[in-house]
């Protein structure tokens, strides 16, 4: 069963079986949303389960099924903010264990490293936009729902993030500044 069929089935039938089908399709994405934002695995699973629980309980609130993922990531975002707020109110002291001598970092692809490095150069709202667009694969319409901004703003923000990345890539490779940089500056 594909994602769209599972979504349609759940909203049409609202049975346990339909929810199971939806869960199988959606839970990994909800969990990944938190993992990508540096939440540890156990907490990411807890938060993803909270998201799926809310979807089950508040299914009537979704007006346009085509924007399901926009709605889902709005719920996920709220859960994450709530989690961060709780974290901030706690002070935890942990004993750090020394690293084992044979400790090594798992090798990842160059592109992956480059992508993670790029994210570090971006402002939090730019990073969020990039992750939702390229990791979660949200459409512009879904981005407007998740981020609560108009379509035109989504487009122009995405363009400016791309342009910023191009400048970073140029700076890293030692190339002169992009000549088309001035293209959009009046």
């Amino acid at each position: 069963m594909d994602e769209q069929t599972a979504i349609r089935l759940f909203f049409d039938e609202r049975t346990d079986e339909a929810f199971c089908a939806l869960f199988v399709e959606v839970y990994p994405r909800a969990r990944r949303y938190f993992l990508v934002r540096n939440v540890d695995q156990m907490t990411a699973e807890d938060l993803a389960q909270a998201v799926l629980f809310r979807i089950h309980q508040k299914a009537d609130e979704l007006k346009d099924r085509a924007l399901f993922y926009g709605w889902l990531f709005t719920i996920a975002r709220n859960e994450l903010l709530q989690h961060w707020r709780k974290q901030q109110s706690r002070i935890v002291t942990v004993e750090l264990e020394p690293l084992a001598e044979n400790f090594t970092v798992e090798p990842t692809g160059m592109l992956q490293l480059e992508f993670d490095e790029w994210l570090n150069f971006l402002e939090p709202n730019e990073r969020e936009l990039l992750l939702l667009r390229f990791v979660e694969g949200l459409t512009y319409e879904e981005l407007t729902v998740t981020l609560g901004i108009p379509l035109g703003t989504v487009e122009s923000r995405l363009f400016h993030v791309r342009k910023k990345l191009l400048r970073i890539a140029d700076a890293q490779s030692g190339k002169p500044k992009a000549s088309a940089n001035s293209k959009t500056s009046k």
Partner: peptide
């Protein structure tokens, strides 16, 4: 590049 990196990131969190 962004599309490809996004895809790799998706695959990195298999369940």
């Amino acid at each position: 590049k962004l599309q490809e990196a996004g895809e790799m990131k998706r695959d990195a969190f298999a369940l």
